[in-house]
Design a protein around this nucleic acid. Structure first.
Length: 383
DNA sequence: GGCCGACCTGA
DNA sequence: CAGGTCGGC
């Protein structure tokens, strides 16, 4: 399977053509938002398996597609910087507005690795300032919505830490792990691909360059899609993808998936489970990561292991794989522990359990041991 | 209702 | 075997 090229690309319109006018922009214009690193850590949040299409394209610079635009994001201790690229169609015409020539004197230096080139646009294509402001406002709102910045993460961490000492010790090194609010269609079809699969292969299937919009329901529902995706290495999941798209098109309105945002958690979960390739785990991922169900706790083998190892949770002990009942019991166990945002808390521990972050976790554990030693010493001194 | 094997693929 | 799900006992 090719992992270097865009696996979905042939199903959707490229936003950026790789051979010419790549990331076509005018004068660079970074904009920013006040945002503490304790509220958002781009590196943790964008690479912990919620979304598979963000890439670190430069040191601390993350590039991906969201809301029909290509974004590059980076951050300092208290500021989130963002940069969007004009969208073009396949004929190379710029569809979005051209960028204004306003530049940040002290903005972060944009660095890219290889694949991305920048073409300058003539400055005369600037649009009136009023429209620019309106447009800028819309992009700021897109970003706030995607990262759910209205949710105060520091407060949640405090609550979870009070209820759960293990969380508290881990959380010190993993602040700012935040739930994204993704597009439901992209989220659903991405997570159908995760079953019985590894992360590296999932990324190979879903990530790619050049940057592109996620394929639409109509495209995915086409009968030719299964064989196409099989040829690209999607395996038996190819059929699930095509069939799920077909079923949604045949039995629901086009906005059915989006409309699940406004129905109760268990109802949304049940609705999703009617789709081929969607069991409890995938349904919970979609509920949590795109349908505003903060209490959904996706229980995979990692989370099950965390429950047993770090919480002495005996639910389902001895079983080789999760039954639906055990799955629900473990979810309830965590919901009772963490409360209505249990799914958000779960993602922090899930993140801390990833192999690539073990060095970070080791630091937290080390601090914890030191703390324990100090407490013990104090006790010893007292007695 | 719960248990078990099959399912694509490649690190 | 891997961040499951499905279909058959």
């Amino acid at each position: 399977m090719r992992t270097s090229s865009n696996q979905w690309g042939f199903l959707s319109q490229s936003i950026i053509m790789s051979q010419y006018a790549v990331l076509s922009v005018g004068a660079k214009s970074w904009r920013c938002l006040p945002c503490l690193r304790t509220e958002l850590r781009l590196d943790l949040t964008l690479s912990c398996g919620q979304s598979f299409r963000w890439r670190e394209t430069g040191d601390g610079h993350w590039t991906g597609v969201m809301g029909g635009r290509v974004w590059t994001l980076t951050q300092t201790e208290d500021t989130l910087w963002y940069y969007t690229y004009s969208m073009q169609d396949s004929e190379g015409k710029v569809k979005g507005r051209k960028r204004s020539a306003e530049a940040r004197p002290d903005g972060p230096v944009k660095r890219t690795r290889g694949m991305i080139t920048v073409k300058e646009e003539p400055a005369e294509d600037q649009e009136p300032k009023a429209k620019t402001t309106e447009h800028d406002h819309k992009e700021e709102e897109l970003l706030k919505d995607y990262f759910q910045l209205n949710v105060n993460l520091a407060d949640l961490y405090k609550q979870w830490g009070t209820a759960d000492t293990h969380f508290k010790s881990i959380a010190k090194a993993f602040t700012g792990v935040r739930m994204l609010r993704q597009d439901p269609t992209e989220c659903l079809f991405s997570f159908i691909c995760t079953s019985n699969n590894h992360i590296s292969r999932i990324q190979g299937m879903l990530d790619g360059t050049p940057y592109h919009d996620f394929p639409t329901l109509q495209v995915l529902a086409d009968s030719s899609v299964e064989s196409c995706l099989r040829n690209l290495g999607f395996g038996y999941r190819a059929r699930f993808l095509q069939q799920s798209a077909r079923q949604i098109m045949d039995t629901h309105d086009l906005d059915w998936l989006d409309s699940l945002r406004s129905v109760p958690y268990l109802q949304a979960q049940e609705a999703l489970r009617s789709l081929p390739g969607v069991g409890l785990k995938v349904a919970d991922c979609v509920c949590l990561m795109s349908l505003d169900k903060a209490q959904a706790v996706p229980v995979d083998t990692h989370v099950w292991q965390i429950a047993q190892r770090d919480y002495r949770c005996t639910v389902g002990k001895g079983l080789k794989s999760l039954t639906d009942k055990v799955y629900r019991d473990i979810g309830n166990f965590f919901r009772e522990l963490w409360g209505p945002y249990a799914g958000w808390a779960q993602s922090v521990l899930f993140c801390s359990d990833l192999k690539k972050f073990q060095d970070l976790k080791a630091m937290a554990v080390k601090k914890e041991e030191v703390t324990e030693v100090n407490i013990t010493n104090k006790k010893n001194k007292k007695t």
